[in-house]
C-alpha cells in the first residue's frame, strides 16, 4: 500500500493557515476574526501531528503539543469572548472600526 506523501498533508495545513490569515485581515467582525484564529491554530495542530507521525513515529511529543494547544485555545476563546461581550456592552457593536479609541 503506497503512502500519502508528507508534502500533501503539509499543503493542506499551509492552505488552511493562509485561509485563516486572509479572514483575519479582511473581516471586520470580531467573532469572525476569532474564528480565523481558530483556523490558524488548527493548521498548526495538523503540522505538529504530521511531523510527529512521519518523522518520529515512536514518540508522542507532537500529540502532546497539540493537546496543550487545544487547551490554550479554549482558554483564549473564553477570555476573548468575555472581552467582546464587554466591548459590545459599551459600543453596541463588535466591529473593530468602532473600537478605535482603544488605540489612544
Amino acid at each position: 500500500m503506497q503512502e500519502i506523501p508528507i508534502s500533501h498533508i503539509l499543503f493542506v495545513s499551509t492552505a488552511l493557515f493562509f485561509i485563516g490569515m486572509y479572514g483575519l485581515f479582511t473581516r471586520r467582525n470580531m467573532i469572525t476574526m476569532l474564528m480565523s484564529i481558530e483556523l490558524i491554530l488548527n493548521s498548526v495542530n495538523i503540522n505538529f501531528v504530521v511531523f510527529n507521525k512521519y518523522l518520529y513515529p515512536e514518540k508522542l511529543d507532537g500529540i502532546f503539543f497539540t493537546i496543550f494547544i487545544i487547551a490554550i485555545a479554549a482558554a483564549e476563546a473564553a477570555v476573548a469572548i468575555a472581552i467582546i461581550i464587554n466591548l459590545y456592552r459599551n459600543h453596541q457593536s463588535i466591529d473593530v472600526k468602532d473600537a478605535e479609541e482603544m488605540k489612544y
Binding site: 503512502e3 506523501p5 508528507i6 508534502s7 499543503f11 499551509t14 507521525k53 512521519y54 518523522l55 513515529p57
Partner: peptide, 14 residues
C-alpha cells in the same frame, strides 16, 4: 519550498 524538501522516513505507516 515544501516541494523540494526531502524528508527521511517518509514511508512511515499511516
Amino acid at each position: 519550498a515544501l516541494k523540494d524538501t526531502e524528508i527521511k522516513g517518509q514511508a512511515a505507516q499511516v
